[in-house]
Simulated assay, not measured.
Amino acid sequence: MLPLGLAFGALVIQSGLDWWWAALSSALIYGGSFEFLLIGMVAACAPLTSVAVAAFLVNARHIFYALSFPLHRVRGRFAKTYSTFALTDEAYALTASEQARSRSGRRIVWMQFFMHLYWAGSATAGALLGSLIPDGVTGLDFALTALFTVLALDAVRDLRGDLPTPLLALGSALAARLLFPGEMLLAAFALFAAGLLARHLTTAKRPAHV
C-alpha cells in the first residue's frame, strides 16, 4: 500500500493537479484503480457522466467480492458500514484465503482501517514530495498493474494445485477481451462467476465413488 500510494500521489502532481487532490481522493474515494483513472479524466475535464460510467465499470467487481467477503463476522452497524466502504482488492485478498477464515470481525475492520490509513497517508506524502521527482521519470501508473500481478500470483499459490480455476480466470479474461472490449472487466468477472457456478453445480451432481 505504501509504495503504491506514493506513486499515486506523485502521479497527481505530475498530472498538474494540486497535492490536496491526492489527500481528498485517497480518503473519500479509496478506490486505487479508479483513482488512477480519475486523474487522467480530471486533467482532461471529462464530463461527469463519463466519470460516473467509468466508476461503475471499474468498481463493479466489488459486487462479486461481496459474495464471499466475511462481512457477517463484523459486528455493529457502523463497523459493517465502514467495512463495506473499505472493501478493496487487497482487503479481499487478505480475508478470502483459507488461512483467514478464523479471523474475527474486529481484526478484519482494524486491518481495513490501517490499509486505508496507509493508502491515504502515503498518497498525501507522495503528492507533497512529488515535485522532487524529475519530469523524465515515467511509468508511475504501472504500479497498480504490478500490484494486481502480485495479488494474482499469491491467489494462484493459495489454490494448491487447483489448475482449472486459474485457467478459467484466464479464459474468462481472454473471452471478455475479444467479445466485450469496452467492458472487459465487468464481462470477465461475470464469465468467471458463471464458470465457477457451473463447475460447482456439475461437481455437486456427480455421484460419490465408494
Rank of each mutant, 00 (worst) to 15 (best):
A120T: 14
L67V: 10
A79F: 01
A52S: 11
H116T: 05
A96V: 14
L163C: 02
F142T: 11
G31M: 09
L67G: 06
L71R: 04
G105Y: 07
A146Y: 05
T88N: 03
L191P: 01
D158W: 00
F36Q: 02
D154H: 04
S131E: 10
A54Y: 09
F192L: 15
A208M: 05
L186A: 03
F142D: 03
V210R: 13
S83E: 11
A123G: 07
R106W: 05
L128P: 09
D154W: 07
S33D: 05
R101I: 03
H116D: 02
V210E: 13
V109N: 04
L67D: 01
L147M: 15
A125V: 12
S83R: 13
T124S: 11
A125N: 07
L128F: 14
A27Q: 07
L140R: 01
A96S: 15
M41K: 04
R75N: 14
A155T: 12
V109E: 01
L144S: 02
L159Y: 03
L94K: 12
Y118F: 13
Q112F: 06
A120R: 00
V210Y: 10
L201W: 14
Q112C: 13
G9V: 02
L132G: 01
I39M: 08
A143S: 15
T145E: 00
A193R: 09
F192A: 14
L168S: 05
T202N: 14
F34N: 12
A46C: 07
L48C: 06
T203S: 15
V51H: 07
A143H: 10
A187V: 04
P164H: 07
I133L: 15
W21P: 00
V210W: 10
L87N: 13
R103A: 11
I39Y: 11
L170V: 04
L186T: 12
G139F: 03
E90T: 09
I108K: 04
A120Q: 05
R157S: 09
S131A: 09
V42W: 05
L140H: 03
Q14V: 00
D89N: 05
G31C: 11
E183I: 14
R106P: 00
Y82S: 09
L140T: 05
T149R: 01
E183T: 13
F180E: 11
A146H: 08
A190I: 10
G32E: 04
F114W: 13
